[in-house]
Computed example of a mutant assay.
Amino acid sequence: MHTKTAYLALSSYPEAPPDASILAAVNFVGSMGCGLHVTTFSVDIPQLYSPMGGLLLDVPALVRGAEEKSKAECRRLESLVQGAAGAGLKVRCKSREVVLGAALDAAAAEARYYELSVLPWSGETLLTQDMAQSVVFGSGRPAILVPSSASAAALHHIAIAWDGSRVAARALWDALALLPKDGRLTVLTIRDEKPLSGPDLAGALAASLHERGYNAKPLGIALSARTISEALQASALEAGAQLLAMGGFGHSRVRDFVLGGATKGVLNDLRMPILLSH
């Protein structure tokens, strides 16, 4: 029987994601019943030449020290993941040495070989955010951002942010591939955020899914004074969902939810695992 495999990329330089976020990501993979492939990336720093001729700094020694520290951190991260994996979670780890600055593109390319990526999220670690953005928008595969607060309970309830768009449909079907046979779906539509293409999009999708055997229910949301991310996450959590699926691009607010420094404050408040499809 085929088993889905999630991909987890961990860069060690200049800093790794927080351990708590890594552990939450590993536990979330276990909740989905997937296998896990982990790649840790150590850094290869090109030789730098000091105009002072090394009189003040031993540049080669500094470079070697940074590279060895990065490799040691990779070994520690692998041990952390292996120690967190339960008996039912099959984990394969490997380490790759890449030139300085190349880890993001390397991770996005490697993620294309797996059903999905699971990425530890921290609003305080810039490299973690850069890695997430690179994999979400460069891999062509769905990616789940997992905050340290995520529950490790078995995945059985998924919320879908639905506006009838192409990217929302992509997120829907990527998420359905993760839902167990007895799982539940909540279809979320925000009523007062933008003009929609129909009067009851959530109800229409829920009815369509129900006809094919899915346990799906619609839920209309009033945005009020909240941001789109606040409204979706709060409603998904109130409904009991463990995962919120949404398109990587749906409209400007969803795009801002994913991209750029201006969104850092919103992403610092990531309250649950988010599946993003682009």
Rank of each mutant, 00 (worst) to 15 (best):
A20I: 03
L259P: 02
I190D: 00
A153T: 08
L219K: 15
T125P: 02
G140T: 13
T128W: 04
C93N: 11
K181F: 06
D105W: 09
A207M: 14
L8V: 15
R64Y: 09
L267V: 08
S21F: 04
G183T: 14
F257P: 01
D58F: 09
G30Y: 09
L127S: 12
A111M: 03
A85V: 07
W121P: 02
P218L: 05
L188G: 01
W173L: 09
S151T: 07
G240M: 14
P147T: 01
S165I: 00
S139I: 12
L270C: 07
V254Q: 04
D163T: 00
C34Q: 10
A152E: 07
L155G: 05
V43H: 08
Q233F: 00
V59Y: 03
A25D: 11
L126Y: 11
I160G: 08
G30N: 07
G164E: 05
A202N: 10
R166T: 13
F257C: 03
E110D: 15
Q233V: 00
A262W: 14
S11F: 11
V254K: 01
P14W: 06
V29R: 03
G164R: 04
S79F: 00
A262S: 15
T3C: 08
G240A: 12
M246A: 11
A241S: 15
L275M: 05
A225F: 01
V135Q: 09
D105N: 13
P120S: 05
D19G: 09
Q82L: 15
G260V: 06
I274E: 03
A143R: 09
A152K: 08
Y7H: 06
V43S: 13
D192C: 00
Q82R: 15
L57D: 12
L119E: 07
R271N: 05
L104D: 14
M131S: 15
L104C: 04
L127I: 15
M52E: 08
A175Y: 04
A241E: 11
R253Y: 01
A204M: 15
